[in-house]
Design a protein around this nucleic acid. Structure first.
Length: 461
DNA sequence: TGAAATGTTGGGGCG
DNA sequence: ACGCCCCAACATTTC
């Protein structure tokens, strides 16, 4: 009888195109385990916990999971002792905490005859394989993107067949982990927007490629339209692999005979942005807490709790900003263009440290991702790699008029603006006082003044 | 994957 | 017919 092997699930909660699962299944009967490790890893935000609950529930309908909680290295050591497992199979992670987990696992497994088998699949390419001519990591997106497009992608593989070990070791129940919010159940609205799990991810990709990719280049910046893929939370938890998306998108473009080339290319470019963020964080682990550009180390951020609170509660008085923050609270996501605008507003109009915004997004986004979150907040703040220059300050009114010209997006999330005419819907304070919506606040800062203050602060740096 | 200020150009009104 | 001015439209520069 072959010894069982541990299959350690991490952010790879799928069965198809799973190299570690395929290798483990060839090696012996499986003991699939998921470890809730909030000691080595950053504790999850609320929205991510909701997602994880449903993703684990979905995966365990097809493959029973042993659920354990604690420090990954200690849990795996304990499980190996309990079960006599001879090897551990897992997908490589690239966040600082995931790297630490792997170092700790390696440290005890090394001399004890337990084989460690680390596989790819989380990214399109491992961070060591995409480098500049000098062999250094890329810090600029465009040449990084060129290098990714030139590298042969790993072809996705179908689901492997496996055998389960019998018996399986005991584990927690999902309910014991209490990942779902209660009192109040602020995630009440999430279920109508999302279907966590591998099947939901596959469905989302198929819908996007069938219905939306052709118009993606044109419509992706219009937040009222359902033009984006909404795959990010599925990608974050590995319910679908970037290789699957890459391959399916190319296949779809080929089948469409050129009609989807522009949209497909833009979409793949967004997938490469995700890859870029992950590579950046891997090579520069301090991206999460230090400005990538050192000159920002002494930037005089203000620490205004009241302003932060108004921003979080969607009471800034700028409709596009408030609509985005309200969409975030209600659905656990926010349209990408609106993310840039609310982030710019927090960092530049309110002068709050980008890490405060990052923390809010971490807690409220179902797609919260350490690499994308840190890299993109730094991008907006101007302190990041290949970042937007600091003086690029979004005007929420102009952005609204350009990308939400009929106000459909702001009215969807701010019903108090329902009866405001298009001409004023992005700037209700321009209405005569008597005609202004009763339950919507005036702007908390004047755009011109806030812009001037941010520019003066930056200049003094 | 900006916005605002400043510069340039060219058509049209007008004396 | 001509010069002058205004100003929209577009381009460039600056923040």
């Amino acid at each position: 009888m072959t010894e069982p092997v541990l299959l350690w699930f991490r952010r790879d909660l799928r069965l198809a195109d799973h190299p570690a699962l395929a290798a483990a299944a060839r090696a012996g009967p499986l003991i699939p385990v998921f470890i809730l490790d909030e000691e080595t890893l950053r504790p999850l935000g609320g929205a991510a916990r909701w997602w994880l609950h449903h993703a684990l529930a979905s995966l365990s309908r097809d493959l029973p999971l042993v659920l354990r909680r604690g420090r990954a290295a200690a849990v795996l050591q304990q499980l190996a002792a309990e079960t006599g497992a001879s090897a551990i199979y897992f997908s490589r992670g690239h966040e600082p905490g995931e790297v630490r987990q792997e170092q700790e696992v390696k440290a005890w497994a090394g001399g004890r005859g337990v084989g460690l088998h680390r596989h790819g699949g989380v990214l399109l390419h491992e961070p060591e394989t995409i480098t500049t001519g000098q062999g250094t990591p890329f810090k600029v997106f465009t040449p990084f993107s060129r290098a990714v497009k030139a590298a042969p992608p790993r072809p996705p593989k179908p689901k492997a067949a496996w055998t389960l070990a019998d018996p399986q070791p005991p584990g927690d129940t999902l309910a014991q982990w209490q990942l779902l919010p209660a009192r109040p159940n602020w995630a009440r609205g999430f279920a109508s927007h999302w279907q966590p799990g591998e099947a939901g991810a596959r469905q989302r990709l198929a819908d996007f490629l069938d219905e939306h990719v052709a118009a993606y280049a044109r419509d992706r910046d219009v937040p009222a339209r359902p033009a984006t893929s909404r795959l990010s939370p599925h990608l974050h938890w590995g319910e679908i692999s970037p290789a699957q998306i890459w391959s399916a998108t190319h296949a779809s473009m080929a089948a469409a005979g050129g009609l989807q080339d522009e949209g497909g290319g833009k979409f793949l470019s967004e997938l490469i942005w995700r890859e870029f963020c992950a590579h950046l964080l891997f090579h520069f682990p301090h991206l999460t807490d230090q400005p990538f550009r050192a000159e920002f180390a002494n930037f005089p951020w203000t620490d205004d709790h009241a302003a932060m609170r108004r921003w979080q509660r969607a009471e800034t008085g700028y409709p596009l900003v408030d609509a985005g923050l309200r969409e975030l609270w209600i659905t656990g996501t926010m349209h990408n263009r609106v993310r840039m605008i609310v982030a710019s507003f927090l960092v530049k109009h309110l002068m709050q440290h980008w890490r405060q915004g990052e923390a809010w997004f971490w807690d409220t986004l179902v797609d919260a991702d350490i690499a994308s979150n840190a890299a993109n907040w730094q991008w907006v703040a101007g302190s990041g790699a290949d970042a937007a220059p600091f003086f690029r300050i979004f005007n929420p009114v102009l952005q609204g008029e350009t990308f939400d010209p009929d106000g459909a997006y702001v009215r969807r999330w701010l019903p108090e603006l329902a009866s405001v005419a298009n001409k004023h819907v992005h700037a209700p304070w321009t209405l005569p006082e008597a005609a202004r919506p009763k339950h919507y606040p005036p702007p908390m800062v004047d755009h011109g003044a806030a812009r001037a203050r941010a520019l003066a602060t930056f200049k003094a740096l």
